[in-house]
């Protein structure tokens, strides 16, 4: 049958790598949206992270420094969004879209002269004999460190939101900024912090594309991953572990459909290439049907600007 020649261990290992960029970016955006801000500029921040990470890694020879550079560039770009929406109270949807346009252009300008260069390799974490365990060795112990870092970040995000005072403040600001303000929380400052965290994570996700996934600099290299990340946040109903599920589901179906093609599946190709999008919709419908709106978990102040009038 179709699935017969596809090795599940190899498939899972591949999808874990494929999902890293959207998972990182989606986690960042999750925190941003939890604080009540909708930043549609993920794609722009990702691609700025991709070129900045690439430039830094090529010039320093260190992928680690490259990832940090990508994160910083993403955060820097998100600061434009933060200033506009938090101080000048601009519309978040439009500002986010403008940020994407700006980021795409800027990355292409910055990337001139970096075409066709190979970045320093990001190596696999040496697990020694663990990597030779059947099935689990391939799935769990054969990746580069960013794969583990992305999973760690899911846990950290979950823990911060659930069990720390910081998480409580972020949620309070996102649920009801008026109330949070009257409790003495600095709504604007919290939101700026969250926006920059979101920028940094998107930047790091972008850097993963240009440093590990491809690895090369090409104009428009992220080709829409930021949009998928946005969708994954909604898919996850603003819950970190569901971001991981969503990213692995989407990445998994993408990898699976290509594998099915390579294995000579009888399913028509065009249906296979639509599959990741259709199945994501289907799963979300199943998950969101039959429940009240409360369980959807959307931050109540999402997308609304806050201005302290007193």
């Amino acid at each position: 049958m179709d699935f017969g020649s596809i090795n599940p261990a190899v498939l899972i290992a591949s999808l874990m790598v494929a999902a890293v960029p959207i998972m990182l970016a989606a986690l960042g955006e999750l925190i941003v949206e939890k604080s009540g801000v909708l930043n549609l500029g993920v794609e722009g921040m990702m691609i700025i992270g991709a070129i900045a990470g690439f430039i830094v890694a090529v010039n320093t020879g260190s992928p680690v420094v490259g990832f940090i550079g990508g994160a910083m560039a993403g955060a820097a770009l998100s600061l434009i969004f933060a200033c506009l929406t938090q101080f000048l109270l601009t519309n978040q949807v439009a500002t986010g879209l403008a940020l994407t346009l700006f980021g795409l252009g800027l990355s292409s300008l910055a990337g001139q002269g970096y075409n066709g260069i190979k970045p320093p390799p990001t190596g696999a974490v040496p697990f020694g004999p663990l990597a030779d365990i059947p099935f689990f060795g391939r799935v769990l112990f054969g990746h580069d460190w960013m794969v583990y870092f992305s999973i760690l970040m899911v846990a950290v995000t979950w823990w911060v939101l659930k069990s720390t005072r910081l998480g409580l403040i972020i949620r309070a600001v996102g649920e009801n900024h008026e109330a949070a303000h009257s409790l003495g929380y600095k709504v604007t400052r919290v939101r700026i912090g969250c926006i920059m965290f979101g920028g940094a994570m998107a930047g790091m996700g972008g850097a993963y594309v240009s440093l590990v996934r491809v690895p090369q600099w090409i104009d428009g290299i992220t080709s829409g991953a930021g949009w998928i990340a946005l969708a994954i946040v909604v898919f996850a109903s603003w819950r970190p572990w569901r971001v991981m599920i969503g990213a692995y589901l989407f990445g998994g179906i993408t990898v699976l459909q290509l594998n099915l093609q390579a294995a000579g599946s009888a399913i028509p190709v065009e249906y296979l290439s639509m599959a990741p999008y259709l199945i994501t919709i289907l799963v979300l419908v199943i998950m969101s049907s039959g429940r009240g709106k409360a369980s959807l978990n959307a931050p109540a102040s999402l997308g609304q600007n806050f201005h302290a009038s007193h």
Binding site: T90, A98, F102, G103, G105
Partner: peptide, 19 residues
């Protein structure tokens, strides 16, 4: 790309000064 950046800036300013 320079034109894209320019358009992005125009949008930032149009949205920003609306305040």
């Amino acid at each position: 790309a320079a034109i894209q950046v320019f358009q992005g800036m125009l949008l930032f300013f149009l949205l920003g000064v609306d305040v």
